[in-house]
Design a protein around this nucleic acid. Structure first.
Lengths: 234, 234
DNA sequence: TGCAGGCCTATTGTTGACAAAATAGCCTTG
DNA sequence: CAAGGCTATTTTGTCAACAATAGGCCTGCA
């Protein structure tokens, strides 16, 4: 299930379909996965010879992949020195969440306007399934369900650039944080209640309400993170 | 002046300071400039041998530069076929403006909270200079002044990721459009009045009002574009 | 005459070698 | 003993040649 959701959430890094994958594309995806999974920790240097050897390729495609990640803002480069995985300070993580709040709020509003009746019905069914799964509070299932819910609303906005930003760099950054920080997910019942209200607002085509509820939902997550981050490390 | 503003607005594509520029960095910037200036039109194919020759380098650095632009979403690639400059349909341009409206509105709200008194004063001085320049309605001066105003507010938000998104890919896309489409700038007096109201709201630390005014300001620009785009080309 | 199949050329993908720059360690000197 | 410079090594930047794929072209057959 996690795999499915990961694929759903990585459309911008997915290469062309079938076997039209080039080595640089594969390496690019592997690097994203490595960074997000914590295999390449924040701030770690990416040694071209070593990583190329570990990934079984030469430096050419690796360098192209690094340049792609640079465009996605997952790594920072310095000429003649090398590339390092970006480091997110707590303050910057908070800033990312602020941007996400604004954009996903917008997505919820647009989704209320543009989602088809069928998509709205599917959203309701998804929540019903989550409700059934809630007793077996498997952490990962909860997280996957959370992604799935947000992803559907983002897609429902119908705004291509909004979708690309939210499922692209912003999502990778948040995904990266999830591994390094302690779990700060809300109690599943609370998250589900939030989701239910948002879905109801969308079903009633009340964009303003949907936006407000979504912003609150994400803002709460941001505040939970801030609470659990008392120590400040510049 | 145009040069100054362009530099101000391209922090993410600026390479390391001084002569620590690598060829791939230079080529990357040249490609962005070529796309934005219309030298490489929307949808045009980027032939690696030809472009490499024209830019006086080999294919290696060029390919890295293309991969960087791919991350910035300025080009789209297809394996074994090549890279093409992205084409913005009118609908997509409208979507970009919608995202910009949300993010710059957020920037105005944050700027009202975070800008120092000195920065607020400078913003006022900037507008005073624009007011003086308004009789000599040099189109380019107006456009540069517009950029300068928006740029200062974006920077004033203090949110690094907001700044990167707005001055990075979103800005390049809008810049790209400006060249291909007919000028749809508002009358300078109207733009200046809008700017003045926004600056006043920021000076009074009224974030909500600043956000609302900024959103309206950008929304008006979006509607002007939509009006002048009756023909639909998929 | 139309279509199908295979060849052919041009372009992209990849590799390894070479050049240049930066860092680290060592030696010298005050 | 510390500080500064020099050298050596490692790493990054660049290039040109080689391999592989795609799309067009030509021919042959129905």
């Amino acid at each position: 299930m996690a795999k499915i959701v990961d694929n759903l959430w990585s459309p911008t890094t997915d290469p062309a379909p079938s076997d039209h994958r080039t080595i640089a594309d594969r390496v690019s995806q592997q690097l994203v996965d490595a960074i997000v999974s914590g295999d390449l920790p924040q701030g770690s240097k990416i040694s071209e010879p070593e990583v190329a050897r570990r990934l079984g390729t030469s430096r050419g495609p690796l360098r192209e992949a690094i340049r792609r990640l640079e465009g996605l803002r997952l790594v920072q480069r310095q000429a003649h020195v090398g590339a390092r995985v970006i480091t997110l300070s707590h303050r910057e993580l908070d800033e990312v969440y602020s941007v996400r709040e604004a954009l996903e709020g917008m997505a919820a509003r647009l989704a209320a306007q543009h989602m088809s009746e069928e998509e709205v019905a599917e959203l309701g069914e998804l929540l019903a399934r989550h409700e059934l799964m809630i007793e077996q509070d498997h952490d990962y299932v909860q997280a996957a369900g959370d992604y799935d819910f947000h992803y559907r609303i983002i897609r429902g906005s119908g705004n291509r650039w909004l979708i690309e930003l939210l499922t692209g760099e912003l999502y990778h950054l948040i995904r990266m944080y999830r591994l390094t920080a302690t779990r700060s997910a809300p109690r599943p019942e609370r998250a589900l209640a939030d989701h239910r209200r948002i879905a109801d607002a969308i079903a009633e085509r009340d964009g303003e309400l949907a936006e407000m509820l979504m912003r609150r939902h994400i803002s709460a997550a941001r505040q939970r993170i801030a609470q659990r981050m008392p120590e400040e490390s510049p």
